[in-house]
Design a protein around this nucleic acid. Sequence first.
DNA 1: GATGAATGAGATTTCATTCAT
DNA 2: AATGAATGAAATCTCATTCAT
Lengths: 227, 227, 227, 227
Amino acid sequence: MKEEKRINKEESIITAAEKVFNKVGYKNAKMEEVAKLAGITKVTLYTYFQSKENLYMALTYRGFQKLLNGYYQIIDKYKNEPGLISSLALLNKFMDFSTENFVYNEALLNYFSTIRSADENKLTDALKESIYFKKMQDIHNLIFKLSAKEILRGKSDGSIINSFDPMFLSLHAWTMIIGYSKVLAASGNEDTTIFHIKMKDLKNLILQTAKIVLINNIDIEENLFEL
Amino acid sequence: MKEEKRINKEESIITAAEKVFNKVGYKNAKMEEVAKLAGITKVTLYTYFQSKENLYMALTYRGFQKLLNGYYQIIDKYKNEPGLISSLALLNKFMDFSTENFVYNEALLNYFSTIRSADENKLTDALKESIYFKKMQDIHNLIFKLSAKEILRGKSDGSIINSFDPMFLSLHAWTMIIGYSKVLAASGNEDTTIFHIKMKDLKNLILQTAKIVLINNIDIEENLFEL
Amino acid sequence: MKEEKRINKEESIITAAEKVFNKVGYKNAKMEEVAKLAGITKVTLYTYFQSKENLYMALTYRGFQKLLNGYYQIIDKYKNEPGLISSLALLNKFMDFSTENFVYNEALLNYFSTIRSADENKLTDALKESIYFKKMQDIHNLIFKLSAKEILRGKSDGSIINSFDPMFLSLHAWTMIIGYSKVLAASGNEDTTIFHIKMKDLKNLILQTAKIVLINNIDIEENLFEL
Amino acid sequence: MKEEKRINKEESIITAAEKVFNKVGYKNAKMEEVAKLAGITKVTLYTYFQSKENLYMALTYRGFQKLLNGYYQIIDKYKNEPGLISSLALLNKFMDFSTENFVYNEALLNYFSTIRSADENKLTDALKESIYFKKMQDIHNLIFKLSAKEILRGKSDGSIINSFDPMFLSLHAWTMIIGYSKVLAASGNEDTTIFHIKMKDLKNLILQTAKIVLINNIDIEENLFEL
DNA sequence: GATGAATGAGATTTCATTCAT
DNA sequence: AATGAATGAAATCTCATTCAT
């Protein structure tokens, strides 16, 4: 009961934070504003989330969970389809997610920027102590793993030809998604036009590109030019 | 001060800022530290750069200039090669640049996150008044245009087959390299391994992928799956 | 905070400020020092008093209140005495106050220098926004009015003969005591000697002079000399 | 020649300073502004006057000289009149001077506030080193002495009866003048009305008061009231 | 001697975070 | 657990004053 209540409260706070962050961006957002919108005081806010960064991580975590849920749904939906299809569907899912969840997308991008393996000393204390940051670290690879798993299935069922390590292919797909979501962040939404180009077309080209990569063996040793 | 002298001074300050930002990250960096490293006082620092954000934008601008210079060099170097080669070389250049210039890479990523067309209220006042931010806005599309130009040349010389709008192809390539640089930012450098995968391999796969896209006509209307 | 508590806090800060200002003078006083002496931080100091000038005005206001209280006590004490006596007692009170409260004296002199009716552009922004400056402006004439009231009473009871407007006589008395307090500010205290003259003697002469003015009708039209 | 040139320059700077100080007050005045108005740069200004305080002292000194000149003229003009007349004329002169020379008046008042015999440690270094401050210190008593001298002459010729020390009487007159000029500073000019009272009337009352004091013997031992 | 640039000291502001009740 | 007040760190600004050329 108590626990449940606490969780509800946390959720409502995160929701408020989402709104504020969405409006003015993380950096400009003030804890005071979040608290106000959540109908509590700043100090209460701090009893739930010990730092601004932790709050942001909680939001990130929520976004990541939402994305994962989407992934699981896709996996389930396409479980009887070839692995190629489900793999591409995951890609598609991520891009839609980015489009529909601006703040989450930003948060996720930001998260993956933060976790520089090499530079733990650049992490703030607040972040190191963030429970949600720890949670994220425990699961952040899941997104690659789920994708890799579908690619592996595709290899088994013959729909995917490329012989590279599934994690490698998964990472490659990820780079395209990230790039897409970055462009999206800089432009607005799927219906937006940038240089007269529709984001939707860009998405489709990315999907087709991914498909081509998956159904072909590609020689990455070939030297394309002399530097 | 003579313009030249002032510029020299600015440059030396930016260089100091680079070192500080590289060491502790933008957020933790103190203006006092930057000033000290530049051998000036805080106030002098402020007469040159009116805010921390402006200083960061100056650094970003310098990074962007450096990247553009690299682009121009590549374009010149491969001016007698087919457009396909130079286009891929540009891509390669960007990725190398990201690898070799960590702070710039981060700064550029940050910049492209910041320029949310629609949301001026997410910009801080300091940023709005930043002369370097304005400068960046004036030229940030150049990177796409240069790339598009080479693609266009490739079409002319027959090395590039894909019939899409060059800007579209340029943007698509951009998504991949942005993704790459983001992964890079999250991992470290080219020699780093992420999921046992070498960044160098990722780079090569991206180049090959880009090549495939450029030398083929791709149907982006095909429906890959039912949602 | 409860109003009462806040006021206590304000008072303790003003007390600290008095000590610091008394020791090193307004100009050399540092807000940091005041805060330290008050046992708070600079920022807290600023939440109570928004500027150094406002703090000084608060001190001025306190000094003025103290002076007014002294006036009320005198008025009460001499309420059964002739108006002449109470009027002179007020004068005397002011001079004693100036003598005993160096910082207040200086602050009040400073205040009366500052309020140049016609020249709002000589006021700093901080002063214009000072709540205590406003408070002072609301009551600074009280000192004349209280004095004028006693003079009026003196006229009624026949102890004061001079037929001029009580406010005029009050202002005239004011010029003498302001002059006295100024000389005092420049010399030190009542026991000090300036040109071998005791401040105490000066005070007494001023009182006698005031008395003469009050108990005589004076012709101010008489031409004393040709210019 | 050189010396003369330098003096001319100094004079023109002081004149500029007067204008600036008159407009915004000493505290708000910026050296930059003074320099600009004088048609020189800030640094040049500093070669002439080593500090803002010194500049202000120079202005004060000029004002004092002007006042003294006025005194000498009066003394000369009334040298064949009784000492009472010339004494009052001096008083009158001072009040006119205050009226006509707002900045000087303020500067003089300020000067006499500053020279607190007891508190040398409150003097700033800049002031201690000010050549004009030293000059002022050498002559600031002159104003009292000139006045005392005329009073003494009045005693000799029988026009002044009061047997007090002439310096004492002089100081007493001074307090009234100071008070007058303070009130004037707070109100504007001679034509201004404060509490419906004309400053000119105030001046005349002060003169009459002074006259009464000078032509009567006054008992300053009399106890006017019990405190 | 004149100039543009820089310094130094301190005022003021902004917020995330913490304390006391 | 909630609240109002306070803290601490750093950004930013203002100017008198000084330096280097």
